[in-house]
Design a protein around this nucleic acid. Structure first.
Length: 331
DNA sequence: ACGATTTGACCATT
DNA sequence: AATGGTCAAATCGT
């Protein structure tokens, strides 16, 4: 849809702008902090560190930009049809989340399963309301409800993948209804409409971070609240863009993560065709303390990826879980 | 003191 | 009966 394209274009503009600013900053710092050859070792190392950081920033921005452009890959799926977004794996194809034996399907509304690398998070505020050991699963499943509004029906179940502990299997149930009536207090968000999907890894409940911040930071988000407002993405489950590990940002503590912006009141609900890109940012999903920390694999700019659904898709009445999902470069 | 998280118990579904 | 999902009191952190 056009909207999706405009969102991507908007994000792309911001990223390009960030790249320019970074380059300018680099130039300025180069003058202020004469690199290596500097007289004082201290100054030299500082300059080196700054340079390294700036390089990381520009590299991350490039990665995000690439991901955005690859975003064309989007796959619009009709509501009810689920998709598994595997973040990471360098496009080599992620592992699926096979339905566990004894796992039952709920019949309450739509749900979508997403498998993400840890350290990703979405822009919504989630409140954990339960945790349970699941038969056959090594890790417990955590239950979250939208914390923005009690009336919002959005829920998500987060479980660390048995197959790959570095991934979180997040199942979303129902779309957010909190976007409809009361837009969150506005802030300096840049991109309109955030709806990020995500997953997290760290032990903290996460928080949202502004995309910019996310892109710049490479530190693991353990118990770190994000400060700036997050920015991000459109509808979840449509497409996914994996940010480079360096894009991972510290998460905020559960309580106030995500200030989903506001001006983003227009967040589309699941199934809408609005968004094409997803920005995965560390999420609150794992307020639990046991989640592992891993890096999000980089997306290789090999060309427009294509989302492929594997044959063995398990269909439930209202829930669908796709077992295998891969991203392959278009030849 | 308030709000979020934890955790055991209860309920619903298969 | 077994299992997953939700509730709610207790606990913890701010």
């Amino acid at each position: 849809m056009a909207a999706a394209g405009s969102v991507g274009a908007t994000m792309e503009r911001f990223i390009v702008g960030a790249q320019k600013s970074t380059n300018q900053l680099k130039a300025v710092l180069a003058k202020l902090l004469p690199a290596a050859g500097g007289a004082r070792a201290g100054a030299g190392s500082s300059a080196g560190a700054v340079d390294a950081l700036l390089s990381d920033i520009t590299d991350s921005l490039s990665q995000v930009l690439t991901s955005l452009r690859l975003g064309a890959l989007n796959t619009q799926r009709p509501p009810g049809q689920s998709s598994i977004v595997v973040v990471g794996g360098g496009g080599s194809g992620g592992r699926s989340a096979p339905r566990r034996c004894g796992q039952r399907a709920r019949t309450d509304g739509e749900c979508r399963l997403i498998v993400l690398q840890n350290e990703v998070q979405d822009s919504y505020t989630w409140r954990k309301y339960g945790q349970k050991e699941i038969l056959g699963a090594r890790f417990p499943r955590s239950y979250f409800k939208c914390g923005r509004k009690p009336s919002c029906l959005a829920k998500k179940h987060v479980q660390q993948s048995d197959a790959d502990p570095s991934k979180l299997e997040i199942t979303y149930h129902n779309g957010h209804t909190c976007d409809d009536d009361s837009p969150p207090p506005s802030s300096s968000h840049i991109v309109p409409d955030p709806r990020i999907i995500s997953s997290g890894t760290q032990r903290n409940a996460a928080g949202l971070v502004p995309v910019a911040t996310a892109v710049l930071s490479s530190q693991p988000c353990i118990g770190q609240p994000p400060s700036p407002p997050l920015r991000s993405v459109p509808d979840m489950m449509t497409t996914g863009v994996a940010l480079p590990a360096s894009a991972v940002v510290p998460a905020a503590s559960s309580t106030q993560y995500d200030p989903v912006p506001d001006d983003t009141a227009s967040t589309p609900s699941i199934g809408e065709e609005e968004a094409e890109l997803l920005l995965f940012i560390p999420s609150p999903a794992c307020s639990q303390s046991e989640l592992l920390h891993t890096e999000v694999a980089k997306v290789e700019p090999l060309g427009p990826p294509v989302w492929m659904e594997h044959d063995d898709v398990a269909h439930d009445d209202a829930c669908v879980a796709i077992s295998d999902f891969m991203v392959v470069p278009e030849v």
